[in-house]
């Protein structure tokens, strides 16, 4: 299982990383493996605001589907439009080109409260 050491995590397997003034979010290697071949990702339009922990999108494989949860309260700046036609990117490069959303946080300090890479690794190993 690959872990991005620069990211912080949710128990529900989303990672989030600082990116300039904003944050980027995707799903972990553990999650993409568990879901299998991703066939569809539903992502929000720019400008939408979500509270921490609320669902901002959906990811689907042939046999499973999962809501995507907002790691921190914030407003969507952009969604990864490349995923519309190439969902396999999520399986191939979940921490890089397979990112989902870029958002500005209401309170950037919320990032510090998320799981560290080590904490997340322990959580996901238990599954």
């Amino acid at each position: 299982m690959k872990i991005d050491q620069n990211a912080k995590y949710l128990k529900s397997h989303e990672w989030t990383r600082k990116d300039g003034d904003a944050f980027v979010c995707g799903i972990s290697d553990h999650a993409q493996k568990a879901l299998g071949d991703i066939v569809y990702v539903d992502l929000p339009a720019p400008g939408k605001h979500y509270k921490k922990g609320s669902a901002f999108g959906v990811i689907e494989s042939v046999k499973a589907a999962s809501d995507l949860y907002m790691p921190m309260s914030g407003t969507i700046v952009s969604s990864n439009t490349d995923l519309a036609d190439h969902t396999d990117i999520v399986n191939k490069d979940c921490y890089g080109a397979g990112w989902f959303i870029r958002f500005t946080a209401d309170d950037p300090k919320e990032w510090d409260t998320l799981l560290s890479p080590l904490e997340y690794m322990k959580v996901s190993e238990k599954e």
Binding site: V39, Y40, E60, S61, K63, A64, A65, D67
Partner: peptide, 12 residues
């Protein structure tokens, strides 16, 4: 497109 359906998504 079965991920829309009840046997996978249940209450959602």
């Amino acid at each position: 497109l079965v991920a829309r359906e009840q046997h996978i998504r249940r209450e959602k």
